[in-house]
Amino acid sequence: MSLSSLVPRSFFVGVFIVLAVVGGVSQRQGIEVVDALGRVVRFERPPERLTLAGKGSFMLIDAAYLFPTEARQRIAAFAGAAQLSVDWLTLIDPTFRQTKTLLESQVGPEQIAATKPDAVILRALESTKLGPGVERLGIPVVYVELETIERYLNDLRILGQIFVNSKRAEELGAFYAERLGRVAQRTREIRERPRVLVLNYSVRGGTVAFEVAPVKWMQTQMVERAGGDPIWTSTAQPGGWTVVTFEQIAAWNPDIIFIIDYSGDARVTISKLRQDPLWASLKAVKNNQIYGFPGDFYSWDQPNPRWILGLSWLATKIQPKLFSDIDILSELRAFFSLYGLSPETIQTKILPVLKGDLP
């Protein structure tokens, strides 16, 4: 297993190659990876066996597979998750059942060690939980954030360092930066921001609840960037979804409502809400401005790589005059091609599973 050491350093992005060769990077060269916590993780050679684990591991898996060749070759194991889609994994890595170890979602350090990784990749929220236990077993840990728009491009660069493919990281960064720039440029000088409410619909123990996201979460950031005013921020609590009552929703009486449904199709949920007299009295429902957040195998509102699709889609709904030229299906095809999926595969395997308010 590669030796590593962790050195506190003010945050920067970069990778130091200990040995250099003309024409590329030798797989025997040492590397340094600067992770999301600003730590320097040193390897005598690029890690060849990677284990991905921790909370929200499906987001981490999907980000890693934006490096299709490296992910297939170097990921040895990953942890399951509530939202993990085997059908999606089969599309992007048809042999994963034979080549990868699928761990339990609540995996511990000893189970991770059993996969014999050269390094473990975790989200930064595990830096005080799972991470220290893994490091005590002598296994290097590299953290990525995968939580905010501001840091997402850096997370891709970190993965590029681990996979020793900075060129691919730059290509991915350009894809995201182009779309972020388009939204930022068009919304920079808008004077009127519609009052927007994003609600997560959930059913626990037979009880229906509506929840709002924390201020720093992706859902709130996406609304702000897409030209809307997220009206729930004064009510949201940090660290997780906050349940809100219908009375609070009615008091807000938003211009636009977006419904997220991780366990189903939000269009079905909205159809039921329209039949409820209380919901029918809301301005957004009266004006036909209530939408189901899109998704395919995963919803587009999360810190999964699909958030860039969610941002573009939101912009077309919140500021339709500014983004009337955006063809979301074209955006979708461009995005899924990043995983190496052919146009035919996208047509036959992705489009049929689309959910939410899409063309």
Rank of each mutant, 00 (worst) to 15 (best):
L197C: 06
V198A: 11
V198C: 03
L199N: 02
L199P: 01
N200T: 13
N200W: 11
N200A: 13
Y201G: 03
Y201C: 09
Y201S: 14
Y201H: 15
S202V: 12
S202M: 14
S202Y: 10
S202C: 11
V203N: 14
V203G: 13
R204D: 15
R204W: 09
G205T: 12
G206D: 07
V208R: 15
F210A: 00
E211T: 10
V212P: 02
V212Q: 00
A213E: 10
A213H: 11
A213I: 00
A213D: 02
V215K: 15
K216G: 12
K216F: 10
W217R: 05
W217T: 05
M218W: 02
T220F: 04
T220L: 01
Q221D: 06
Q221G: 02
M222P: 01
M222T: 05
V223G: 01
E224S: 13
E224D: 12
R225Y: 08
R225D: 03
R225Q: 14
A226P: 08
A226T: 08
A226F: 06
G227M: 04
G228Q: 08
G228M: 05
G228L: 08
D229P: 06
D229A: 13
P230I: 08
W232S: 08
T233Y: 00
S234M: 12
A236V: 06
Q237V: 14
Q237I: 13
Q237M: 14
Q237D: 13
Q237A: 15
G239V: 11
G239H: 11
G240H: 05
W241I: 03
T242W: 00
T242H: 02
V243W: 10
V243F: 09
V243P: 05
V244P: 00
T245S: 15
T245F: 10
F246S: 08
F246C: 08
Q248D: 01
I249S: 00
A250L: 13
A250M: 12
A250K: 14
N253M: 03
N253Y: 03
I257S: 00
I257E: 01
I257M: 06
F258M: 04
I259F: 02
I259K: 00
I260C: 09
D261G: 08
Y262E: 15
D265C: 05
D265Q: 05
D265G: 07
A266C: 07
A266Y: 07
R267Q: 12
V268Y: 12
V268Q: 15
V268T: 14
T269E: 10
T269V: 14
I270T: 05
S271V: 01
K272G: 10
